[in-house]
């Protein structure tokens, strides 16, 4: 049995047909073709499927799609504005904080959730915020440096 699921995705209202067993990750990737959340393990261990649900990082592979009805979901697709990359995206790019890139969308969103609440985190707070996201390429040091650079305001100005 399918239900109409309505929620806000990256600021836009969407309606999509979903089954009760569909996860949010299934709906985003297979139905809405939003591809930044990655299916790394599909069981909550890796963080590659991280999205923001009302600003909080959640594992979309463990979130039942119908449970997000009426709520706000954000993926990396929603970060850039008018073709301008988000400061975190620019910082990740310039610090080489993405190698294969598989963990990167989850890392960026985990970092965004942290900075939105705590714009000047300590090293320990950043490490803690991204410690649920596995990176097989081992980019942790570069991710840390990128987030620290954003926290210092180095990417505040929007580049034309």
């Amino acid at each position: 049995m399918k239900y109409i699921l309505s929620f806000v995705l990256n600021g836009q209202p969407v309606d999509v047909l979903a089954e009760p067993t569909d996860t949010l990750l299934d709906v985003l990737r297979e139905k809405l073709r939003v591809m930044s959340p990655k299916r790394g393990c599909d069981e909550g261990d890796c963080g590659a499927c991280t999205v923001l649900l009302n600003g909080e990082p959640v594992r979309s592979c463990l979130t039942l799609a119908l449970s997000v009805a009426g709520q706000e979901v954000m993926t990396v697709e929603g970060l850039s504005k008018n073709g301008k990359l988000h400061p975190l995206q620019r910082a990740f790019h310039e610090h080489y904080a993405a190698q294969c890139g598989f963990c990167t969308p989850g890392m960026i969103l985990a970092a965004k959730a942290l900075l939105d609440k705590n714009p000047h985190p300590t090293r320990e707070e950043i490490v803690e915020a991204i410690s649920g996201n596995l990176c097989r390429c081992g980019t942790y040091q570069e991710v840390l440096e990128a987030v620290q650079a954003v926290a210092r305001g180095e990417y505040a100005e929007v580049k034309e």
């Binding site: 790394g40 393990c41 261990d45 490490v127 803690e128 649920g132 596995l134 081992g138 942790y140 040091q141």
Partner: peptide
């Protein structure tokens, strides 16, 4: 991945 343990940022 919960029993094949990779390093995380916390192990840096």
């Amino acid at each position: 991945f919960s029993d094949y343990i990779l390093t995380t940022a916390a192990d840096m």
